[in-house]
Design a protein around this nucleic acid. Structure first.
Lengths: 219, 219
DNA sequence: CTCTTATTGATACGATCGAACCATAACCGA
DNA sequence: TCGGTTATGGTTCGATCGTATCAATAAGAG
């Protein structure tokens, strides 16, 4: 077999160019020529690796999500308080916020694809899979918090998880529009978490929920 | 002066075509020819009324927002419980949810424009004005609720308003993606409102905040 | 009736799009 | 060394884009 290039690396390089263009100007500017220029390759190479433009958009999104999942998992596991329910919940929600350029680009790409999710049947399943997974994950973490006595036992974990996720998603929008800093959004999320993890942080099982008033926090 | 047409009506007709196309397929499909076909007019007419495509996109969005504000105000004022703080807050938040085709289209248009808000300096101010206004409005309503003794007095109205708005916005996303019905989203919002309006609904001033545990609710 | 002008329609032009085709350089097993 | 597969670049083609130009229509004032 003749000279072999690292296909995955090549594909990744081109996919990154797609992300940058989509985040900067929207899908309208993700043309084969622009992607080629941004990635520093020829148009022909993009066709060689991805085929059509539709396939490129699809693959670039798949690579983005795959990448994001790996990085997110690593970040959550590297948290200082990865052994407390609240710490992990906070870490997961922080992945919804554009805390750095990587996450900002990722979310902008998702916004750029958004309308397409609704009519492109190849893209639809990709958009559909993530949220239910995250809801279940958060619900499990809240249940863990209840077992640890940090979350009031009478709360329903799944709806609470759904609300947390929606709140983080809504905060994300404002951060992307630069109407809030990531830190301000995180402070609001912490306030919401204060309400959820309102029971006494007992080291042993304390099934008696003792509601405490939340502490005010500067936005 | 020769025959006169209703300019505003004409502009509105064309703007509606822009909205439908943007909501259906994204800004990529908002071409002059497509808009002309969708509105049932000629390309020349669009140029006559709006000039360039950029001006069309800008004007169509302005008309959308102007329309939306009128309709939203009318809907909120027509509410059954427009005389209670909670009722008005709920009404305002419902405007964030795609409760009908009109609001669904409106929010989809906003999503389609989203990335453009970040680099088109003509569009940026339009996106920037609405959220702070809504936050102040909701904060005032919460303060009203505190005066009525329905909202715990120790809560900070502005951050609470910000969280409510973010939650509604996040729920909106899932409804647009048809991962939730508007009714399910509204049920989650009501759960959040239960937590905020947790004091006794006293007809007279009851400044003593008595925290009560929230009642579970089916999603 | 007619003339003027607001309003609408059809067409043309240069640019750019996605896609396809052809050519060639790089590489490795034989 | 050589043959053939793999990887890359350059160019062309028809379609469609936004925009500009050229006409035609319709209606009210005189």
């Amino acid at each position: 077999m003749p000279r072999q290039a690292d296909h995955d690396q090549r594909r990744h390089q081109i996919a990154e160019a797609v992300w940058r263009l989509a985040a900067r100007r929207g899908l309208e500017d993700v043309t084969l020529r622009q992607v080629a220029a941004e990635a520093g390759v020829s148009v022909r190479l993009i066709q060689y690796y991805f085929g059509s433009r539709d396939a490129l958009l699809l693959k670039a999104l798949e690579i983005l999500n795959h990448d994001a999942q790996l990085r997110a998992r690593a970040r959550v596991e590297a948290l200082d308080d990865a052994n407390t329910p609240r710490g992990v919940v906070r870490g997961v929600l922080m992945e919804m916020l554009p805390m750095d350029e990587e996450r900002r680009t990722r979310h902008l790409v998702h916004v750029a694809y958004f309308v397409r999710f609704l009519w492109d049947e190849n893209l639809a399943p990709i958009a559909a899979e993530a949220p239910p997974e995250l809801e279940r994950l958060l619900a499990d973490l809240i249940t863990w918090g209840q077992r640890e006595g940090q979350v009031p036992a009478d709360l329903d974990p799944l709806p609470e998880a759904e609300i947390l996720l929606a709140t983080a998603d809504g905060l994300q929008t404002t951060v992307l529009l630069r109407q809030r800093t990531p830190e301000q959004a995180l402070a609001l999320l912490d306030r919401q978490l204060d309400r959820l993890f309102s029971a006494a942080p007992a080291p042993t099982r304390t099934p008696a929920p003792t509601p405490t008033p939340e502490s005010p926090e500067a936005p």
